[in-house]
Design a binder for these strands. Structure first.
Length: 302
DNA sequence: TTTCAGGTGGTGC
DNA sequence: GCACCACCTGAA
């Protein structure tokens, strides 16, 4: 019999609370932000959301909602930080809370009626700023795949190659593995749950990062179009995946990922049957990435 | 049992 | 350039 897993669980030191961060913000809805398709590791237990970020465990809950006369909500949240420290400044960067969404959404709403409805429906969504390696690998695993299965594979990868951070809500949480932690893995080793043929892409990507001088910070210095081409040198990264990585890791708001849902939406709402990318580039000229995320949420959930 | 799912890369024209 | 199609796997 194999007791290893439960033994390990009891061995994990109790997560120590480092700090509490209070966030008050308009145009910030945590649940929508976490579950609009950009994040894969956040879990919900009751009214609490939690996830590993770097080597911290972050636990969040909403504490209050106050409305002004103009129906503008201000939401209050408490974030508890366990394990490694994670500062308020880091949290604000992670959820991009310093950006003026009021004016951005107003601009986007002005484009047409569809966007106006999408913005109204998705109000509170923020484009997160997540880790470069985490987004690169996660979106390589996302191709021809669905969210539950992507999460499954990501967690399996973290459990096998990441660091155990501690137990929360009865489960061990693991950090996302670094390239160094994946460096010794053979193709066989990378064959974790539900990964399938994507293991080859992951293996090739890890090897390329190890054996080249490629610096994942490069897209910060390049134009949007050059960044897309730069990211496509990694196996398993095509236009859609490159745009997701640029939007969710690099904060490149020119990125506009076009997947099967967005294609369907472009067809149904705008009559675009092909050359989607050309249409997108000429039509969504104001914060394309944010417009895309609101439209995506609108058609998926609305 | 079959089909489909938040694409990509290889092939053929 | 552009249109096909194989591809791992879990869920319905």
């Amino acid at each position: 019999m194999d007791f290893r897993k439960s033994d390990l669980k009891t061995e994990h030191k109790k997560l120590e609370k480092i700090r509490e961060i209070h966030i008050e913000s308009t145009y910030f809805d945590l649940e929508k932000t976490l579950y609009c398709g950009q994040a894969f590791r956040w879990r919900k237990a009751g009214d609490v959301f939690y996830a590993p970020i770097d080597h911290s465990v972050v636990v969040a809950r909403k504490t209050a909602v106050t409305s002004t006369i103009q129906t503008n909500k201000t939401e209050s949240y408490i974030f508890e930080i366990y394990g490694d420290d994670f500062t308020k400044e880091q949290l604000i960067t992670y959820f991009d809370l310093n950006r003026d969404y009021a004016s951005i959404l107003e601009e986007i709403s002005g484009i047409d009626e569809h966007l106006k409805a999408a913005v109204l429906y998705g109000k509170g969504i923020r484009i997160m700023r997540q880790g470069l390696v985490e987004m690169l690998i996660t979106f390589i695993l996302s191709s021809n795949n669905n969210i539950p299965k992507i999460s499954m594979t990501v967690e399996a990868l973290c459990e096998k190659f990441g660091d155990a951070l501690g137990v929360y809500n009865g489960e061990v949480l693991y950090s996302f593995p670094t390239i160094a932690q994946l460096s010794d893995a053979s193709l066989e080793d990378l064959n974790v749950k539900a990964i399938g043929y994507r293991a080859k892409s992951l293996y090739a990507t890890v090897q390329l990062l190890l054996n080249s001088q490629l610096d994942l910070n490069e897209p910060f210095r390049l134009s949007h179009h050059t960044s897309v081409e730069w990211l496509k040198q990694f196996h398993g990264v095509g236009n859609k995946v490159a745009n997701c990585i640029l939007l969710f890791a690099y904060g490149d708001y020119e990125a506009f990922p076009v997947d099967t849902w967005v294609k369907r939406m472009l067809n149904e709402l705008y009559g675009v049957e092909k050359k989607h990318e050309a249409f997108v580039e000429s039509y969504f000229t104001k914060f394309p990435g944010i417009a895309q995320q609101y439209l995506f949420y609108y058609i998926r959930k609305g």
